[in-house]
Design a protein around this nucleic acid. Sequence first.
DNA 1: GTTAGCACTCTGGCACTGAGAGTGCTAACC
DNA 2: GGTTAGCACTCTCAGTGCCAGAGTGCTAAC
Lengths: 353, 353
Amino acid sequence: MARRKDRPGPLDPRSAAILRAIIEEYVATAQPVASQALVVKYHLDVSSATVRNVMAELERAGYLRSPHTSAGRVPTDAGYRLYVESISTAVVLAPVEQLMIRHQFGQVEFASEQWFRLAASTLAGATHSAGLATPAKPDATRLRRLDLVEAGERLASLILVLAEGSVRQLLVPLDEGTDQAGLDSIAGRLNERLSGLAAGDMTPVIRALPLDDDLDRLAARIAERVERAMREFDAMAVDDLFSEGLLNVLAEPEFAQTEKVRRVFALLEDRVYFGDLVHEVTESGDVRIYIGAENRPIELHDVALVLAPYGRPGRASGVVGVLGPTRMAYPHAISTVRYVSALMNELVDHLYA
Amino acid sequence: MARRKDRPGPLDPRSAAILRAIIEEYVATAQPVASQALVVKYHLDVSSATVRNVMAELERAGYLRSPHTSAGRVPTDAGYRLYVESISTAVVLAPVEQLMIRHQFGQVEFASEQWFRLAASTLAGATHSAGLATPAKPDATRLRRLDLVEAGERLASLILVLAEGSVRQLLVPLDEGTDQAGLDSIAGRLNERLSGLAAGDMTPVIRALPLDDDLDRLAARIAERVERAMREFDAMAVDDLFSEGLLNVLAEPEFAQTEKVRRVFALLEDRVYFGDLVHEVTESGDVRIYIGAENRPIELHDVALVLAPYGRPGRASGVVGVLGPTRMAYPHAISTVRYVSALMNELVDHLYA
DNA sequence: GTTAGCACTCTGGCACTGAGAGTGCTAACC
DNA sequence: GGTTAGCACTCTCAGTGCCAGAGTGCTAAC
């Protein structure tokens, strides 16, 4: 059954051009594309009849489908896939847009915690889709410094400054009262011994802590709490998948009824699935694109994801990207995501230097 | 003014009962309510004809409307308003639900920053609407302690622990390099002088700082930065309106087309409007309800808000509440919001004691 | 291989229909 | 007087038939 066009690797140039034109037209209008209209709009040097022949072929090959006999053609997931493959290597974001994005990044204060949110909202704005971002997650968090502050009776606020500059705070109950001076002294001692360490290296150090007086014992217990907290930070799967601009997706005609959207949104809360995805993207090291049914969960069969990793493997990494309808302006989305990911790389280099 | 006639204040008991039944039925089914169905379902001791007469009256009075001649009746905003007014004083949340909510609050760590998020998501879950919450905002933030950590070349991380236990972090550029020891010394000096103060009290203290050597001058500059940051915290209108469970709202039949929802969601970003609203609710001191067109922005004409203040005036306060369709289970929403607000009161008492 | 031409098919809008739902009104009832 | 039974009336909704328009697939000629 060796049909010639069964697995047609490279399409002949004309078919490719027509497929490309159809996709671009459909992306722009959200309407099935007719042969006639294509010829006029894209100045093809052939008649509409020829285009129809090609279309019929492309449909047989699975790249197009017609909603019904007398409608035009609409790209399938496979069609988008082919299209994306043919362009994804080359596209670079227009300098104007680069500038705009860079400018947005310049606006914000240096609060490192917020960068990934900014990335998501920038992506949302630039692509008119939903922007996604995970915070940069260090492979093994190092403690830079800790601090203890009285927080009520027998309660202290433990503040952990992590290597990359982020700050975590938790309350620790104290079995015995101590004043701020005592807490300062404990913090001083622990800083001496623990700062610069990752959770994995803390155990022996903590074992070696003196236990001579009450303060020593309290210090030891706090040290254990610190270690546990550090382990928890490391273990947190995907700390957070932050999304911005879901509204943009709502505005697309394919999401006019809420039901579809609702399911997509609901899936965004699925930490497990997105954890896997983030891992996959990080491993691959470049922009990855998931179109329609290529997404495992059926909730995502109507949308496309364009994701790129950022950061430095072995140090800290995360993922940025966009979520939109499969009818998405891929070249623009890809180049924008790639550009933002590059910006985030710079940032990580800075913070985790 | 002959108020009695055109807006008959106290409805006679039977009309009130019928209005109430209509609202409860409509809330449950989202379908226009017919006279016949009412009689059967609510065991009214009158015939459907009588109910129809009453309905016609209620419609004339503006509490009901019929979508068209042969449909049943649907409550108007005024109808809901009357209904709400007649029940809002008394309702108390069922003990089981109280327990469930308390349990949810128990689950989380002591990280005070997160409580308001928890409130929003609890409210969303309990009412199947969107939960809203603003963080507790102290009237005048006091500094409890500051800390400085090296964060790269000529860059320090300034960590501010505020009186209520929350932590803010910002990066400050240093014109001249200093090592961690220098930073520690500066932090020590500034803590001595600034801790316990609100932004308003810092100016004279900062003026009085010595300026003898480089370190002094650097300390002074950082002190100014601290003061500015504290002022900014105070000024932040409504720090954040956090919402959770917007998905729940999407599921309601009245939001089957996305366009309405999109506008509602978009308005949630309007910090100015919600700032005013939060202020209004805080002033009033009790649950406040905004039904449909009672909301100023037309984007909210299809939804109802049930909001309650929490916290202690003069110390720290915020707002919690829910957003849902005007066709909302008001008694349940009101009692839930009120209960969560009471829980948050306890929390504020604890943290800002 | 390409194209003109035409028959064919399907959708979308419109008008019409009948059934069903629910009301408003009137006249009788208590 | 208020209440009720009964019935005409109105409006929606689903289904049907029809027509115009859009776009294709196919054939035969170039």
